[in-house]
Design a protein around this nucleic acid. Structure first.
Lengths: 244, 244
DNA sequence: CGGGAAGTTGACGGGTCTCAATGGCCGTGG
DNA sequence: CCACGGCCATTGAGACCCGTCAACTTCCCG
């Protein structure tokens, strides 16, 4: 990844997962983009409780969005993959209600929130896209809430593995060896409302049942059907989504 | 409530919870509004799995947004109060991933989704407002996910009671007798990922501790501080939000 | 007076949590 | 080169929160 990727030749646009934009729109996005930055694995992209004045699109790498209770219990709301957009929630109040942390080394496109209005007035279609992204993010959080509220531990893990597998695959992270899977068991536990120990034991059982393999941080699902059945999963039609 | 309320004299606009709009914007909203409808308590506003082509603003009454697993387990994502907006998630796919059901008799403003593009192109500020509403809804779902994932049963219930109390209060539903509270214990259980029986027993304990009273479906919180402490609650600054 | 929905209660079992200890891997520094 | 520490994964034991089952009551409404 170069220090500065130009939007018109953004590698994400050619992977097939995103809907196309007009040249004028891409030009606008290019000048909307303030800069590009790298965050090392484990680094903070957004602090809980701090005010943010920027929006981010993940260009490469993984991150996650979370929030903690005052005694330290942590809940991960969602994981961010290339093409995902984050930061909208922060214009609502002074302080960002959630934190965002890099899971791997991450490249981000940075947009100044104060010029968001420009985008809406000059390119309503892009404004529409941002709403779409926001609604899509909510859909994923809904899905996670359903898991945490109503699925058993093994169902939750099955759901998470399928879902992340599909998302990683859709942005061309997949290979014959599987898709990259940079989460630790602690991340899985925090995303699913489980304890670390119970997560470990449940993972062990799923592995013994041949439902997944994980080698060199590469995830494979040898029996997708059994997995989907366990999770009560049905895919939403994942057609092209906007990219800002 | 008359059969058709005009937007310019919408009773919600005068309750202080919503940010003002220009006359031109309100005119547009008025003609964007296709019709107004009443749904009886328990009635379906949006079916799970059916495609929706409409957007709704709750004019009066309560509703809730939920989704079920194929074996019937149900998770409530959020409750809808007057001024809340719903339906955005449905343009994403053919089928609505969630259902919406009326909790009380409910009046709805109905907007045709196919004219949403008009809104974005002619009144970008309203498009911006819709994004805001979407981000706000996501914030609430995040908060619920944090509860369900990381709070104990009594903490969850405390959180829900405080949150709904504040929301009802903010749209002037409050009186000296408390705010209306139309949920059954089953709804509370489904929103918090708990069983009905455990919800009942936990509610009993909170009641015995003097943390809430419920008479004639009117909720009162005699000791808000203790409640907030139990829930690890801190209010987000609830300033004016948009109203479509 | 009957019936259904909502709330209440006790007994019991199990899924999940906590505590505690161990082993593997890896980068760092002596 | 090896010792050390830190992060991550693993495993066992025991406790407890919460779920399930099954009754019963209360209330409302026809």
């Amino acid at each position: 990844m170069t220090a500065h990727t130009s939007c018109i030749s953004c590698p994400l646009r050619s992977c097939g997962a995103f809907s196309p934009n007009s040249e004028a729109e891409i030009d606008f996005i290019q000048q909307f983009k303030e800069r590009q930055t790298k965050i090392a694995a484990g680094g903070t992209i957004l602090s809980e409780g701090k005010s943010g004045s920027e929006l981010y699109t993940v260009l490469s790498g993984w991150a996650f969005r979370y929030r903690s209770l005052s005694d330290g219990r942590r809940q991960i709301f969602n994981f961010l993959l290339p093409g995902d957009f984050v930061g909208l929630q922060d214009q609502l109040g002074q302080a960002s209600p959630h934190g965002v942390e890099a899971l791997t080394d991450t490249d981000l496109c940075v947009f100044p929130i104060k010029r968001l209005w420009d985008l809406y007035s000059k390119h309503p279609a892009l404004g529409f896209d941002i709403t779409w992204l926001c609604a899509h993010e909510e859909l994923i959080v809904d899905e996670n809430l359903l898991s945490v509220g109503r699925r058993s531990a093994s169902e939750r893990i099955a759901m998470l593995l399928i879902h992340l597998y599909k998302r990683a695959e859709s942005v061309s992270l997949g290979g014959s060896e599987g898709v990259p899977f940079p989460l630790t068991q602690q991340h899985i536990a925090d995303a699913l409302g489980l304890s670390l120990v119970h997560t470990n034991k449940t993972l062990k059982r799923l592995h013994a049942a041949g439902l997944y393999t994980l080698n060199n941080s590469l995830l494979k699902l040898p029996n997708p059907l059994a997995m989907a059945q366990l999770a009560d999963y049905y895919a939403l039609p994942l057609r092209g989504r906007p990219l800002i």
